[in-house]
């Protein structure tokens, strides 16, 4: 039961994201980077499958700059066996589809039964790579997966995925791509021997040239959507205390605000 987990390194959920003065991009200096939390669910699920089936390899595939090695090592410390790091400036500045294309090229030559991605990365929040990867590999996918059950013969997988107002149970033939949603599992905390062992595990560096992709289809050159300008939203204002003569009036006002201003209901 060989799994591949696509992993992205992202700024910590609590990190301060500032915009460059010219608005061309965000500033990521002094930011703590972590494994994209949804990808981490994927790592955990792959490790669970390995524990269940034995005789398995869990391979991390990560596209991103040099700093990503830290997150790759974290996944290896959790128990993944090896990693491939697509680290090349030529791959930077792309969109989800150039990323998925590069990942697909890399993964094509690998042995796998199942691929895990996060349902989205918490930096660009695009939620596209997993689906596009499946399309490029010409295998099916299931999004927003919260439960995974691989059949004993390793031929198919039954998943529960989140849909509006409930869950959908799907059966997919293997290999396939599953994108992990919160609730799938609770990722483990790497043990210290795991951390030490991870330092010695194989991380294969891959350059753009190795992928044999047309230069026009990768990185910034291949991107079909581009960030034109970034803005910081207005700072969170102090709480709006809903005033009113009576509890009834306050309640009515609040309900209206939630609906019309906050658009939360």
């Amino acid at each position: 039961m060989n799994s591949i987990v696509c992993l992205k390194q992202v700024p910590d959920t609590e990190a301060q994201i500032r915009v460059k003065p010219d608005g061309s991009d965000v500033l990521l200096q002094d930011v703590k980077f972590i494994i994209n939390p949804y990808d981490e669910y994927g790592v955990e699920e792959a490790l669970k499958l390995k524990e269940k089936f034995g005789q398995s390899t869990v391979t991390i595939v990560c596209l991103g700059p040099e700093r990503c090695i830290e997150s790759i090592r974290t996944a290896l410390a959790m128990g993944a066996d090896k990693a491939v790091h697509l680290d090349d400036p030529a791959l930077d500045g792309g969109d989800a589809f150039t990323t998925a294309r590069a990942l697909a090229e890399q993964i094509k030559g690998m042995e796998y039964d199942i691929i895990f991605c996060g349902k989205q990365a918490i930096d660009d929040d695009a939620a596209q790579v997993g689906v596009a990867l499946a399309e490029y590999l010409n295998i099916p996918h299931a999004n927003l997966v919260i439960k995974v059950e691989v059949s004993a013969d390793k031929k198919k997988v039954t998943v529960n995925r989140q849909i509006v107002g409930g869950e959908e149970v799907l059966e997919l033939p293997l290999p396939c791509v599953l994108t992990a949603q919160k609730g799938l599992n609770e990722p483990r905390y790497a043990s210290l021997p795991g951390i030490m062992k991870a330092k010695k595990k194989e991380v294969k560096p891959v350059k753009a040239a190795d992928l044999k992709l047309d230069a026009a289809r990768i990185g910034a050159a291949g991107a079909k959507s581009k960030v034109l300008k970034c803005y910081s939203p207005p700072p969170r204002t102090a709480a709006q205390i809903v005033a009113g003569e009576s509890p009834e009036e306050k309640a009515a006002k609040l309900a209206k605000l939630l609906r019309e201003e906050a658009k939360a209901i």
């Binding site: 700024p11 965000v26 918490i122 929040d125 079909k224 034109l228 970034c230 803005y231 910081s232 939203p233």
Partner: peptide
């Protein structure tokens, strides 16, 4: 044609253009 979308869980908003998209 441009769109605006939140990124980083709403910590940043970005205008997105599609210069190369068919």
């Amino acid at each position: 044609f441009n769109v605006r979308r939140p990124m980083y869980a709403g910590k940043v908003y970005a205008d997105i253009g599609f210069p190369n998209a068919p």
